[in-house]
């Protein structure tokens, strides 16, 4: 089997932080055009998985591989991964006081897609359009990155970046938490438009079935204590919402 048919391929990933082991053998494959979801209780390792794909310096990968289109991501710096097309919508976006949103977006698009992509009318139009779609007022361009943004505004701003940066792999870490109902619908629409029928893929981390009703993921994975214990179709989301996670715990009778 060729790696090339996989957009993202994670094999036997073990990772720890400060000697505490957190990921205990993750296996995950996403094909181009697919949207997958990860669910799992608090502290099970969802954000850790996302952070490791993006290259957060605090985590140590003990063994295993992470590949994007057959390229070894683990050998790349975070910004190289970003330039390769990995995008992470953060669970907790960081604020950067003094850095204006407009300036930040222009610089980031230039860093990832090249100077040309961040110049001229085309970029400005795309920016205006996307902000309108996400209901972000144009006054935000003059505000500082995530500084004083409400929870929902931060999430919308993450998706704005996603739309402008056109990633190959979009990871959304609880982007739906904190969004209002319209926000969830808008974000789902954005994800479908960015992924379906393209060579890109997405990994949605969530606690709720609502967003998944809109995006209809190809697969849902359940993460418990650093391991994927179950994989199923979209119907799994509702089942989890009803039954919780206990029945999936190790040693459970079910």
């Amino acid at each position: 089997m060729s790696n090339d048919s996989q957009l993202l391929k994670i094999q036997d990933l073990y990772a720890c932080i400060d000697d505490t082991s957190i990921l205990k053998g993750i296996n995950l494959e996403i094909k181009p055009g697919e949207i997958h979801a990860i669910m799992g209780r608090n502290g099970s390792g969802k954000t850790t998985t996302a952070n490791i794909i993006m290259g957060h310096p605090d985590y140590e990968v003990e063994s295993g591989t992470v590949e994007l289109n057959g390229e070894n991501l683990l050998e790349m710096e975070t910004w190289e991964r970003a330039r390769e097309g990995v995008f992470l919508s953060f669970q907790y976006p960081q604020s950067v006081p003094g850095l204006q949103v407009g300036n930040f977006l222009r610089k980031s698009v230039a860093a990832i897609l090249g100077e040309e992509a961040a110049k001229g009318k085309e970029f400005r139009n795309k920016l205006k359009e996307s902000m309108k779609e996400l209901d972000i007022p144009s006054s935000f361009l003059g505000r500082y990155v995530n500084d004083g943004f409400s929870g929902g505004e931060k999430k919308r701003f993450e998706i704005l970046q996603l739309m402008l940066m056109k990633p190959k792999l979009a990871i959304l870490d609880e982007t739906d938490s904190g969004l209002d109902i319209d926000g969830i619908r808008t974000v789902a629409k954005g994800i479908n438009a960015a992924i379906r029928g393209t060579e890109s893929g997405a990994l949605i981390i969530t606690h709720y079935s609502r967003i998944l009703e809109h995006v209809k993921p190809d697969k849902i994975h359940v993460l418990i204590s650093g391991k994927i214990v179950k994989t199923g179709g979209p119907e799994l989301a509702l089942e989890l919402e009803e039954r919780g996670y206990d029945w999936l715990e190790e040693g459970s009778e079910d």
Partner: peptide
């Protein structure tokens, strides 16, 4: 990390 994840 946030800024580096945006290609910087």
């Amino acid at each position: 990390f946030y800024l580096m994840s945006r290609g910087h």
